[in-house]
Design a protein around this nucleic acid. Structure first.
Lengths: 113, 113
DNA sequence: TGAACATATGAACAAGTATTCATATGTTTT
DNA sequence: AAAACATATGAATACTTGTTCATATGTTCA
């Protein structure tokens, strides 16, 4: 660990004071981490178009039912998606419009850059 | 892999057609993944307050110089930050305002939720 | 030129994670 | 009630990744 330069300590303290709390930063990192996986972002992109049952997602993503279910549970635990049962099938959808908006922001950032 | 229900194939095809390309989705996931780490998001939050040299970041984050440098190189490779040299020190800053905006979006999402 | 300083980087290790396989749960149909 | 279907879930494995340690690079100062 480097030494603290006296002339820097002011900047450090000021920055510390203005930054969001450690708790908020950690939670935000967790949020981005959940979105930062190709399978999960494909699921979210699909659900942006409307609710969909698990088997549809499997067909669409060309992935195992088990793999899809595992990722759905991660997304649900993070409250990014919700589900409802209709007969034998379970339909998933984005938890709120906010999620879709953040997704769009990321996508357009990539498209521009 | 589940069987394809004929009555679902229409929804699947339509969703596929409306979704962003595989390439875009993968790149977007990579972008979110980079932001989705506590150390890196702390660095970004600090740099949101203004440019800062590596040793300041080490003091602020209370982390090893090596660990900080490694994460800085990840952030730079993803074009989220840039740097300039001034004498012996190297100052890092956000690559553009867009990055700070996305960070804020994520933070406020967490603060609300 | 050599010493001191600031930062970068390669290798190694520990910890985390996405998928697979096997199986369990819950629903409908016969 | 049993069979068929849709989804969930635990364990195991292969892969990824963040940090540490040691060292290299590049700059300034004496």
């Amino acid at each position: 660990m480097a030494e603290i330069h006296p002339e820097h300590s002011h900047i450090i303290e000021q920055t510390k004071a203005n930054m969001p709390s450690e708790e908020i930063l950690v939670k935000t990192a967790e949020f981005f981490k959940v979105v930062g996986d190709p399978t999960r972002i494909r699921i979210l992109a699909a659900l942006s178009e409307g609710e969909m049952c698990v088997c549809c997602l499997c067909d669409l993503l060309e992935m195992t039912q088990s793999a899809v279910s595992h990722q759905l549970s991660v997304l649900k635990a993070a409250r990014l998606i919700k589900n409802r049962r209709e007969g034998k099938q379970i339909y998933y959808s984005l938890d709120d419009a906010h999620v879709g908006a953040i997704l769009c922001t990321g996508i357009s950032h990539v498209e521009e850059g």
